[in-house]
Amino acid sequence: MSIVLETQSVTKRFGGLTAVNSVDLQVPEHTIASVIGPNGAGKTTFFNCITGFYIPEEGDVLFQGASLIGIAPDKIAKLGIARTYQNIRLFNTMTVIENVMVGHHPRMKKGLIGAVLRGPSTVAEERDAYRMAMDLLRFIGLKDKADVMARNLPYGDQRRLEIARALANEPHLLLLDEPAAGMNPQETAAMTEFIRRLRDERGQTILLIEHDMRVVMGISDQVTVLDHGEKISEGPPDKVKRDPRVIEAYLGKPLEEDV
């Protein structure tokens, strides 16, 4: 099993605040790795360091062996890392299928001239992209809503559409930022199942951020716990669940609980 993503003591500071402090992490291929932690633990900042929106002050991010530091976010996407957002960020006035096709952008080639002349190769590329997008929509169960405006979808569908948009990138690594945020237990269960299918049916490598333990524990191959920007625990879900430091971070010190 090869390592898709490896971070080496990644540190990101904002002024005096250290949002991510020397975090090491490895994501092997075809697995689901999770980063959990209470709110404000630095999870999303960590994602932004991987996707190139922040440049960490120290440490390195290696993707398939090559460093990502200093590479622009769009180039990183092109290398094969796609992400979703904690607060859904779809292209609201575009249709469902168009959203997915935008996700496929880095895998397409035709530029201005191709678009204007619309020769056979452009038509073929567009058709392939369309079919790929339709396949993805079938996979997430939104085929019938392909021409609906993205903002008119119900919440759960928007979540899945966002994942489909990321999948259209054909990524080597999929970053999911709290995919179950704002969902009720049934929806959460469905989402968990969906993520599991991504790994089992499509062999997708996934790095997942969650603060909902139920999602993480059921499907993760490996869990990393962050608190105040630092890694406090790591390992298979069962082990992490029993780690006293994790329990403390989530529930507070037992003493405080009594008070």
Partner: peptide, 16 residues
């Protein structure tokens, strides 16, 4: 898990 990666020397920022 044996992984071969070239690691950059710590603290050294490669500037592009």
């Amino acid at each position: 898990m044996a992984v071969e990666t070239q690691t950059a020397p710590r603290g050294l920022r490669r500037r592009r």
